[in-house]
Design a protein around this nucleic acid. Structure first.
Lengths: 341, 341
DNA sequence: CCAAATTTGATGTACGTAAATCAAAAAATT
DNA sequence: AATTTTTTGATTTACGTACATCAAATTTGG
């Protein structure tokens, strides 16, 4: 049987009330007594029964998700997963609220973060826009004792407790190797379509991609990055343009969202010269393109896992509990047409 | 606020005791009353607070894991993950016991399963050996109301509640495409190293691999399968032999465990002709070989996820609760040297 | 319509923790 | 030593559910 507060009391030779005072950091306990109790806790290996404690406290975990107001499949998917989590809220004792802020806009994000200081939620998850003032705002929350996790895009240099997202440098390198290996001995040019170089995850993917390409596949040269702003129309135009102007393009890496335009441009092109394409994020569009052979591989981050992981981590941090690191590592999914879920 | 038993009682116009009788299927309630209560439950959307219920019942979930006594890295890893889960047992209210049975031995497995009927654990997870008598034994447990999940290797045709493992046909197909694409235009032979064709997961991987190879990469021909019985020594011998005898081997698919022998054989070979290798299961040996370039890709199933998923599912089934399907899908990891965890 | 059987209600205890109150004891201050 | 202050103990209620007991009400059978 797992030890309870009664066992601590007996072991430390104090009353239940004193144990409670120590456990919940209530005042009115002498140093010596406090230490006696703490020793007893360590010695009998007591761990608070979180379920019972939450029951007694009628505790719920008010969580806030701050998301960019972006209109692409991935963000829609992320929203959908958060809605799913809201449905499960009653049984998980969470109460989740989402806040939408303008995308790629540090100021808007900072404003949203500052508002939370008074509200004091049990935890905050945010898709970070990478800027010093955002780091400061996040650090402020952390200092105030509010658990913070970054979602999808990290905020390096900040004191956030956790990052629920993939390693984007590794993703870029993986894309490079897939493209390089799939292209075999062929020589030629590779086009890169990104959303915006202002977002950290896109920058990191490009960084990893370019590094590995240069290092291992020197016979492939990378064309200047196309910034499609995750907009299907713009992406379509850019890709169609590069394909018509550059004869020697034999590979494309699409590292952002909004791949609808890319797929359309690929299907419209006149030349029948083979083209190897690696793209990010599994959506209805990329999935169809993978199946019909327009895209060769998709790198994906599972939004559902990211959301559930963020919630688990926030709850654990709010209670000062440990997390299972291996469980919370968000893996990079590689999908070929054969292992689609 | 989430409705409680009191709310049901008020809504149905009965006492708490009657609600309790209905909820816990205790006798002594008239049909009409029972229906009145059940309607109220549905209408106010009551769901039992499992945490509170488990507290009141002092409930623990006695779970049994039945594992083959195989001496390879993957099974060691699986054991390690179960030990980790045992450490977490107190806070998860589980009490986990493992049973080791002879590998590839239906009779031994059946004996172990039959013993469990009396013990009546809250759930059983087993690495299935594929045989009709095992199906019968599993179905017996299911009929007795004991939740059963298969782990790593499935038992098709049985009434097990869930399978915590990867889709092995898809894994085989994925291996085939990786190998085929990595080899580009090259023509030649491909060797396949398996553990045993008596195990379902190995059979399925081969099936998927052979099918996709024939369909999409006809210029690559598959040599007769080598059965290494997951034994490093035997695998070493078989691979060394096939490499020396077949000049035209340009690819290898290792779909079983015990890849230490394979790696050794690859490093020892004289010829410098390039060889593309896809193997299963990330272990210290395959990881090192991936990094040094001996292996080109590793397909992996995450044992930790499988164990945690099996536990979650067994607990949910024991309580008659729903599981989050997307969360419990065990994904096939594809590791290149760039996305290693 | 009465007795027996069944059904329902009322009530209390338990699970492990949180939180509050009030009294008693111990320590610190004068 | 007397007083004030601080510390500790004892006890109670609560969270939402499970489970048991006994009394009261209702239904059923004869």
């Amino acid at each position: 049987m797992r030890p309870t507060v009664h066992d601590i009391a007996a072991a430390a030779g104090v009353s239940l009330a004193t144990v409670d005072r120590v456990l919940n950091q209530r005042p009115g306990v002498r140093r010596i007594t406090r230490e006696k109790v703490e020793t007893a806790i360590r010695e009998i290996g007591y761990v608070r029964d979180v379920a019972a404690a939450n029951l007694a406290k009628s505790r719920t975990y008010p969580l806030v998700f701050i998301l960019p107001a972006s209109d692409n499949s991935f963000m829609h998917g992320l929203h959908a997963e958060i809605r799913e989590a809201m449905i499960r809220s009653p049984s998980e004792r969470t109460s989740i609220r989402t806040v939408e802020v303008a995308a790629f806009n540090p100021a808007a994000l900072v404003t949203a973060l500052e508002k939370l200081a008074d509200e004091r939620p049990a935890g905050v998850a945010l898709v970070a826009t990478d800027a010093p003032e955002v780091v400061a705002a996040v650090d402020k929350l952390v200092t105030d004792g509010i658990p913070v996790v970054t979602l999808v895009s990290d905020l390096t240099g900040s004191r956030r407790h956790h990052y629920a997202g993939v390693d984007n440098i590794a993703a870029g390198r993986t894309a490079a190797r897939l493209l390089g290996r799939f292209l075999g001995d062929a020589k030629g040019e590779v086009a890169v379509l990104a959303g915006s170089m202002l977002v950290r995850d896109h920058r990191e993917r490009l960084e990893g991609f370019a590094a590995l390409m240069a290092q291992e596949f020197p016979k492939l040269s990378i064309l200047p990055v196309l910034e499609g702003r995750d907009d299907p129309e713009l992406a379509h135009m850019l890709v169609a343009d590069v394909l018509s102007k550059h004869e020697r393009v034999i590979g494309i890496y699409s590292l952002g969202a909004g791949n609808r335009g890319l797929v359309r441009a690929l299907k419209e092109r006149a030349s029948s010269r083979p083209l190897t394409v690696v793209a990010h994020e599994l959506t209805v569009h990329t999935r169809a393109a993978l199946i019909d052979g327009t895209i060769d591989a998709i790198l994906n981050q599972n939004a559902g896992h990211e959301v559930r992981s963020a919630i688990r981590v926030l709850k654990a941090k709010a209670d000062g509990l440990a997390v299972i690191d291996a469980q919370e590592r968000i893996r990079l999914d590689i999908f070929l047409k054969d292992n689609l879920p």
